[in-house]
Design a binder for these strands. Structure first.
Lengths: 232, 232
DNA sequence: CATATTTTTGTTAAAATAATTATATATTTA
DNA sequence: TAAATATATAATTATTTTAACAAAAATATG
């Protein structure tokens, strides 16, 4: 870009923020973590988790920082969604937000911390009205993960480390919003060779119990290089 | 995002820029429009076309503005690529760039204007070293259109309004970097029902001549809603 | 008119996917 | 111990997609 700085004056200040669409998965439902503002302005309105980007931090780091501040989590899957840069998007400031989306394991976040920040999980179908253009961000993020699930095994970020195949199926059903055939699903997902069967069962949802699996990251990365596709 | 503004001081200024990866297609080759800086700093170095985002314009509009300034073109396909927001990416300023990529018809741009700005087309395989992280932007944009071509008929933005099927095939071959079977390609592309056959022939490349087609935007948008896939 | 060149059309086999039927298993509860 | 329930495996069929391949048509040029 060009280097002239004459567009900016002392009073015309450009702010850069980052907002994070945090997805979780629980009991067959895709969920979203949002929080209720406890300070002015806009006190009491629901909002995505976000922050201004500090002058001395990378945009990605700013997103990681807020995620950690609110959930206690580090090292989770997070990726840029897109930027929201219209002049009028924030009536208070000229503020550009670079939205991210994150997939977290809903059992692993710091519940005390989340509570303290006034944050809560909402079923993806029951998200209330959010501040500014945050509802649009959520919609865009949903579209993104729907598409992404086709070529990346996105589910494993959302499930606990050990999970069952029926659990994985319910996740895909929640993302795609359609029922899948359990026999074909099992066949397909096992044929990808990225699951390691464990010698344990999860009996929380059935009498017989279902075998637990874990994700084989090593095999997965090998396959990625060969360019496989994950269409379910 | 939160509203505290205490991260910023007068001297800690955050700049927001936009840079545009402009693709064209000519003679079977994918091409990139870049320009040589004629002013300090960094005079003489190649760079993507870009600008700071003005305080009173949308990010998208800033990108459209520079595209028009340099090529004379309006209303062409342009989409956000991703943001580049690391602290150290620009040694001079704390500047975040929101990169875009555009697909233009290489026959339609304003040649005089392009020349006046010191801009020129480079074959995608022969792009010189660019300023800052612009080579990375080009690489990312290429990856993006390769993937995008799988589910959006991206080619039609790059070809003239009327084009032949062999032309379209050469474009896909340039993007995928592999040869395609002309019989299967034709079958596939026609089966999508987004081409309108015209009663004219293009005889510039063969004795027999090839029928011209145009893109059926109406049918295309109908199909998009149904979620078709464009895998070639 | 024969030649050279590009465009155009069609068939067929193989592979992947989707839909269906069948059966067995482990476990709890009635 | 029979019934109920969710899980697991096997096999079959139908359907769709993909891949591989050959020949004819149109026309400028020599």
């Amino acid at each position: 870009m060009s280097k002239e700085k004459d567009f900016y004056t002392q009073e015309d200040k450009m702010y850069v923020a980052t907002d994070c669409v945090i997805f979780g998965f629980d009991e067959g439902n895709l969920k979203l973590l949002i929080f209720k503002r406890r300070v002015k302005p806009l006190m009491g309105t629901w909002s995505l988790i976000g922050s201004f980007v500090r002058i001395d931090e990378d945009v990605q780091d700013a997103a990681k920082r807020v995620l950690k501040e609110i959930t206690g989590l580090e090292g989770v899957f997070m990726e840029e969604l897109k930027s929201y840069g219209d002049v009028g998007r924030d009536p208070g400031y000229r503020c550009i937000s670079i939205a991210q989306y994150a997939l977290i394991r809903i059992g692993e976040y710091d519940k005390e911390l989340v509570k303290r920040h006034g944050a809560d999980w909402y079923d993806i179908d029951e998200v209330p009205e959010l501040v500014l253009d945050h509802n649009q961000m959520v919609k865009d993020a949903l579209d993104r993960i729907k598409r992404k699930a086709r070529y990346k095994p996105i589910g494993f970020e959302l499930l606990p480390e050990k999970f069952t195949i029926p659990q994985l199926q319910r996740l895909y059903e929640a993302v795609y919003r359609k029922e899948l055939d359990s026999r074909n699903f099992r066949k397909k997902v096992l044929s990808l060779n990225v699951l390691i069967k464990l010698n344990e069962k999860d009996k929380s949802t059935s009498r017989r119990g279902a075998f637990l699996y874990k994700f084989d990251y090593k095999n997965y990365h090998k396959l990625l290089k060969e360019g496989f596709n994950f269409e379910i």
